[in-house]
């Protein structure tokens, strides 16, 4: 009896340990997702503010003034690149958002109303399944999940850097009133912080994805072991139990 209880405790301990790990991983994804949303909102906010300043005439496009048509073309290109980078942040938000929604759903399943027989949670395997589904979805030769996440990391670096570079140009806009200048400085510093958080979490997520990719073959080995369990084995096991 004591042996059975110990076995149950072992199972519950394993579940608790895994649950804690998954909560931590989920938290990492949530922080990353929040930083993406904030970065996206601030970048859109800055574009709106910049357009507003241009319309009311408090800001000027230096390049157009200095280089005429060529300057205007360069300004248009700079704005188009900024828009593309903002769109890719939007794509990342959808990508990580879907992952978090599914992950949260499976982790929330854990505390059921039924009386617990041996296990505390039943959302652990669904969480792994969620991860595995993402790996499977991006299992094409050219775009594995690791490559995709690495690309996101690279784009996050570039877009953050680019946005910061553009803002420093906007900050120089001469005849902007003080209130707007203060707002822009606050926007700039906030964006810098969120960008750094985003980069840190991007690195961590990449590391996490690499770990998971190496783990899945081991889980497949577990399934292969199960397949190799013979019927004789199970009868033998039953006999052992009854003894």
């Amino acid at each position: 009896m004591e042996k059975i209880e110990n076995e149950k405790n072992g199972l519950i301990k394993s579940q608790q340990s895994l649950y804690t790990k998954f909560i931590r991983i989920n938290q990492l994804f949530k922080i990353h997702f929040s930083s993406l949303i904030l970065l996206f909102s601030f970048a859109v906010g800055i574009i709106i503010l910049w357009i507003y300043l241009l319309v009311i005439g408090q800001a000027t496009t230096d390049l157009s003034q200095r280089y005429g048509l060529f300057g205007t073309i360069v300004t248009i290109i700079l704005t188009a690149v900024l828009s593309l980078l903002i769109i890719q942040i939007g794509i990342q938000i959808i990508f990580y958002g879907l992952f978090i929604i599914r992950g949260n759903r499976s982790l929330k399943q854990t505390k059921g109303k039924e009386q617990t027989r041996t296990a505390l949670y039943d959302g652990i395997v669904p969480y792994i399944t969620n991860f595995y589904a993402f790996f499977n979805r991006y299992s094409k030769e050219k775009t594995t999940l690791i490559k995709l996440v690495s690309t996101f990391l690279f784009l996050n670096f570039i877009s953050g850097f680019y946005i910061v570079f553009l803002i420093t140009r906007f900050l120089d806009a001469g005849n902007v009133n003080d209130l707007i200048k203060v707002c822009m400085v606050i926007l700039f510093l906030s964006m810098l912080v969120f960008w750094l958080i985003n980069l840190m979490t991007s690195f961590k997520i990449r590391k996490e994805i690499v770990k998971w990719e190496q783990l899945f073959p081991k889980l497949n080995e577990w399934a292969q072991e199960l397949e190799q369990l013979s019927l004789e084995n199970s009868i033998f096991s039953d006999e052992e139990e009854s003894m």
Partner: peptide, 28 residues
Amino acid sequence: MRRNPCNFYNGDISMSSSRRSKFEIWAE
């Protein structure tokens, strides 16, 4: 669909009627 030749996606591991692998379904 081409599969990555160097990782776990390769091989006959999926259930006949599902895109999920055996370990996911059995463990679940």
